[in-house]
Design a protein around this nucleic acid. Structure first.
Lengths: 241, 241
DNA sequence: AGGCTGTCGATTGTTGAACAACACGGACGG
DNA sequence: CCGTCCGTGTTGTTCAACAATCGACAGCCT
């Protein structure tokens, strides 16, 4: 019976502690900075990112920059060619069609799954990103609204309960942001979809899956057309110089 | 009107020339060697791969080994944790179910697409991997038969005509091979599926899509059960030590 | 003995410098 | 217009070193 006995946590509570998240490495932090700069539009699609320059700017070694590049390449945010280095990726019209075709498949299939009772989704989980999008949109932060929008659709796809599908869809969503960069006016693009998201969410929660499906399909079709035309009029980018 | 005018290719055909494939870097070759060793079963799931040892064995720098690791991690063949290094990934039962759920979705959806006339597939392209599988299987090369098998299903999914889906599915297929490693007897596993592949291919080519769909679903269900049980009885692997 | 604590060796994270290999563009001459 | 040459800048790869961290072992205390 030592002095220390009084305040000792039981093994029960110790075991329930979440494992400590490993602190991000320099390469990960570098990747995060580059990614953020891409999303903010500071690195325009097509611009080359020389290793030496990035190394100097971020105050990390060239090898570390390379590791960051590898990570961003696997996210399809950067293109790469031997002895030519990396450049910020720009979406082609074909890319936009490809991405929206997959979105269509994943998202409608998620609704079908909910419809058939093969999965459930917490209404709160679905409504939270909708509300967040409306809030950030009202505040004038359209980058944030775009993020919330993508999170809404990710949640929907999450109904599948497949880790790999979640990861893949998340990657698709990050690619989408490359398309958003081409939009001349993010506000007029995102604003209508905030309302549509709420409609779709309400239909799903009310169990009116057929209507949700129709709305969603129309939504995707319209958004695809807008993004595709924006990408088409944008300065043409050659991803494999 | 110069002499050279006679045999000059039109700009049309020039533009359609595929860009020359860049020669593989040391990092890519290192990744290829490691990947091959994993598929051959020489690196068993769970075994750690120290950077220094690989560097020495492959006669490349440690940095190059790291680059190779990044590539293989994005293929989900290796697991990684900071300050603990990489280890060969082993599939869990949950992984197997996840993978087969996605296969089911992609492949049946491809058949539906063919059925609706939204896409076409060359019979020869579909039959080639089937024949190759039968040939390599007859020769006793079951690793090769597994490869041909995966190629058959990749071709089917290729009907979607989506570059991203192709890439994602190909990654799923490489992960599948991790599951094949757990099989005690590859021969009895693969042999029946060679015949089933031909059946499915024939049905598709004959336009009997309903039957193809049923066969495919049964195929996947059965294979899933076999691989899952093999993985379950295998020495348990902890992917996030 | 049993549980805790320091210490040590091994491995990874990161750096900086160096050199070879390669791509791009301009100058030059046919 | 074509081909060659060369210089410049960038990337590919290596090496050596040090800091940070992990895993295990030995020793300590009770």
């Amino acid at each position: 019976m030592t002095r220390l006995d009084r305040g000792r946590p039981g093994s029960r509570v110790l075991a329930s502690l979440p494992s400590l998240a490993p602190l991000p490495t320099a390469a990960e932090r570098a990747a995060a900075v580059i990614r953020e700069n891409i999303f903010e539009g500071k690195f325009q699609p097509g611009t080359a990112l020389p290793e030496a320059a990035l190394s100097q700017a971020l105050r990390v070694s060239r090898n570390t920059v390379r590791e960051a590049f590898r990570a961003l390449m696997s996210e399809h945010l950067l293109t790469y060619e031997t002895h030519k280095g990396v450049a910020v990726r720009g979406l082609t019209v074909a890319d936009v069609h490809d991405i929206y075709r997959l979105r269509q498949m994943f998202e409608t299939s998620a609704i079908d799954l909910l419809d058939s009772g093969g999965a459930k989704l917490e209404p709160a989980a679905l409504l939270e990103p909708v509300a967040a999008g409306e809030a950030t949109g009202a505040a004038g932060d359209w980058v944030g609204a775009g993020t919330a929008n993508l999170r809404f659709h990710s949640t929907l796809v999450g109904a599948h309960g497949s880790a790999r599908m979640d990861a893949f869809f998340r990657r698709l969503m990050t690619e989408m942001r490359l398309g958003f960069l081409a939009l001349a006016d993010p506000r007029t693009f995102h604003a209508p979809y905030l309302a549509q998201n709420r409609m779709i969410a309400d239909r799903i929660i009310d169990g009116r899956y057929g209507e949700a499906r129709i709305h969603l399909t129309a939504y995707l079709e319209e958004a695809k057309a807008q993004v595709a035309s924006a990408v088409a009029t944008q300065f043409t980018v050659n991803n494999d110089r």
